[in-house]
């Protein structure tokens, strides 16, 4: 229907008026729906949502709350290879048999009473002890096949079970408490200070000293790491008579410390900074001058020791035992 040459009137198709409102409405709803899908998608695929909360029903209803919580059994009684190998091995049925052996066990004259002989919850344990076939537990914490996590590397350096497994001593049925995603692990590898604790407290899941108690722990660790340095800090910054003494050279008088031959005044500050503050000496750089004067070091040490935080304890442990969590890919992937 070619229109004739000269009259070019606009009789072509023109959208009805309501189309304008419709387009605005459409854009707005598209935005909303899009936003909704994005947020649900983000949270739905968030590792915390996907990983946390896996609680399979085990063949034997073993309660950590009872054994580790109430009875205060140490984790390493059952998971005895946690500080020796990559896997914190699930105990053999024989370990359960020590108490639930089902037979009165005579050991060095002490009759070991068989606990819950008849409980039908333990039928599988007894069957396993008879038949030698293992109890088929269900895996709770599952890392992908290409990730090589090593328990002993963490447990022997002061990372407690609670950091990754949560308060498992309060769980009736074990569930995965933390997301254990790569970002989650890297966050801790990048600043491990809050997660470090003295090695002997690793299986004490409830260990969370505050205030005075934390101060006592801090001093103990300071002493263990750097000898008597911490006990008596005297003098002010210029005629300082505090010297670094690592316990070998004999102390001349009580309260007086002999100079450690290796350390002269100039690099005492360096030794101090390097020993205590590790990579980020800026913690003690009060006046922002960039370098830490001895006074600032002492000042920092004082308030550290006066009201230490878990982070300070972490920095101290990191330096005392040369804990340098690696961030190379081959640490976990190979």
């Amino acid at each position: 229907m070619a229109t004739d040459a000269n009259t070019t009137q606009l009789d072509g198709f023109v959208f009805p008026a309501w189309v304008n409102k419709m387009v605005l409405l459409g854009l707005a709803s598209a935005g909303l729906i899009g936003g909704y899908v994005a947020t649900v998608g983000f949270f739905a695929t968030h590792p915390k949502v996907i990983n946390v909360g896996h609680m399979p029903e085990q063949p034997v209803p073993f309660s950590h709350a009872l054994h580790a919580g109430k009875l205060k059994l140490d984790c390493r009684y059952c998971h005895n290879t946690v500080d020796k190998a990559a896997h914190a091995a699930i105990p053999p049925t024989a370990t359960c048999g020590n108490c639930h052996g089902g037979k009165d066990r005579v050991k060095e004259g002490a009759t070991l009473a068989a606990v819950h002989l008849k409980s039908e919850k333990l039928t599988k344990v007894r069957e396993s002890l008879e038949s030698g076939e293992p109890v088929e537990w269900l895996r709770v914490h599952e890392l992908p096949g290409f990730v090589y996590f090593n328990h002993s590397a963490h447990v022997t350096r002061g990372v407690s079970c609670v950091e990754c497994h949560g308060r498992i001593d309060k769980m009736e049925v074990v569930y995965q408490a933390k997301q254990l995603s790569m970002k989650w692990c890297l966050d801790c590898h990048r600043n491990p200070d809050e997660s470090l604790r003295p090695v002997d407290q690793v299986t004490n899941l409830g260990w969370d000293p505050q205030g005075e108690e934390l101060k006592k722990v801090y001093d103990e660790e300071l002493e263990k790491a750097f000898g008597h340095l911490g006990r008596s800090v005297v003098g002010d910054s210029n005629d300082l008579r505090l010297f670094y003494y690592d316990g070998k050279a004999g102390a001349s008088k009580a309260g007086e410390f002999a100079v450690n031959p290796l350390v002269n005044k100039q690099n005492l500050q360096h030794v101090f900074a390097e020993k205590i503050f590790g990579e980020d000496p800026k913690l003690a750089d009060g006046d922002g001058s960039g370098d830490i004067s001895l006074a600032e070091a002492l000042l920092y040490l004082k308030d550290c020791r006066s009201s230490p935080t878990r982070k300070d304890l972490g920095v101290l442990l990191k330096n005392a035992y040369k804990i340098k969590p690696k961030q190379n890919c081959s640490t976990c992937h190979r």
């Binding site: 968030h46 590792p47 790569m182 970002k183 966050d187």
Partner: peptide
């Protein structure tokens, strides 16, 4: 092919990569 989206700088909560 199914991992081509790693080519795009998407901040994920999983990998931090």
């Amino acid at each position: 092919v199914w991992s081509f989206y790693w080519l795009f700088p998407i901040p994920t909560e999983h990998l931090a990569m």
